[in-house]
């Protein structure tokens, strides 16, 4: 084995860059969060404010509502993607003509810039411009306008997220399904289990670690949605799609209320980490159950 000095030398640039771009902003936001700081206010300097920013934050209904809104959006989108992704992954485990082609094309949305996804869906849903409002009106007499109806705006964003990310869920589930051992399934069929029983008592438990990992990754991504919503609805109509990322951006930057903004950023980070950690614990214990199940 070579001297660890060389190893550390090779690792050092990576660690330094991640410390500057990852760790430093974190420490800085913790620091600024305890100050009143607005460079364009009467007092330009940072004034120590203790936990006052947080005191203001827990009573800030706009902020809390925007958190709730983001959570509802993420849960709806991710749940739909899981169901759809699972069904589509099931079909991809079978052989059929054109499978490789379909699978490749299906992955296309994953590579598209989120901001371009937003632009694309805007062109699709703009009244007078996109075919969606036109044909919904022609075929079903439905008045579809995401600039006016907030329910439709939220629903469209969920649909867009499904369009964008179901391929990801599908491909991950497919990889998981392929890696499952065959024997338990054959045995279950011999024993006369029906499809639902096989799904409920075999596929889901065996796939659990992968399902949870997917939920984990997708939730983290869905909760930080900004680009697509920014492009498609710009937070509107009203505040119906003002997700937390856009909220921070819109409230903090024009008002240059840096102390309060830092507190807000940190609280979002805190909630993300807690959620992240809970899911992580769930994944680890699911993995442990799997290992114990195999032993037992």
């Amino acid at each position: 084995m070579q001297s660890p000095r060389t190893g550390w030398g090779l690792l050092a640039p990576t660690l330094i860059i991640l410390a500057i771009t990852g760790l430093l902003p974190f420490l800085y936001v913790v620091y600024v969060g305890f100050f009143d700081w607005n460079p364009f206010a009467a007092t330009k300097d940072m004034v120590f404010a203790g936990v006052n920013n947080y005191r203001r934050l827990v009573f800030d209904n706009d902020f809390l509502q925007s958190l709730g809104r983001t959570l509802v959006f993420a849960v709806c989108a991710v749940a739909s993607e899981l169901v759809l992704g699972f069904l589509l992954a099931q079909t991809l485990t079978k052989e059929f003509p054109g499978k490789t082609f379909f699978r490749t094309v299906f992955a296309l949305p994953l590579m598209v810039a989120p901001i371009a996804v937003g632009a694309t869906w805007r062109l699709l849903t703009m009244p007078g411009l996109g075919p969606l409002p036109y044909y919904l009106d022609k075929l079903f007499g439905l008045n579809y306008n995401i600039g006016i109806f907030s329910d439709q705006a939220t629903l469209t964003l969920v649909l867009m997220d499904i369009w964008h990310w179901t391929p990801f869920v599908t491909l991950v589930f497919l990889a998981g399904l392929i890696s499952l051992p065959k024997e338990p399934f054959e045995q279950a069929q011999v024993d006369g289990a029906n499809r639902w029983q096989i799904f409920r008592y075999l596929t889901v438990p065996m796939l659990m670690p992968i399902i949870l990992t997917t939920v984990f990754i997708r939730m983290m991504d869905a909760l930080r949605i900004v680009d697509e919503a920014w492009m498609l609805t710009n937070g509107g109509p009203g505040t119906s799609t003002l997700f937390i990322g856009i909220h921070i951006w819109r409230i903090v930057f024009p008002k240059t209320d840096y102390g309060y903004g830092s507190a807000m950023s940190l609280l979002v980070l805190y909630l993300t980490i807690v959620l992240c950690w809970l899911l992580f614990v769930a994944i680890t214990s699911a993995r442990q159950h799997e290992v114990e199940g195999m032993r037992g």
Binding site: V51, V58, F59
Partner: peptide
């Protein structure tokens, strides 16, 4: 600790 403080303030 953070959760208790936040809820307490609220």
């Amino acid at each position: 600790l953070v959760a208790i403080h936040l809820l307490w303030m609220r």
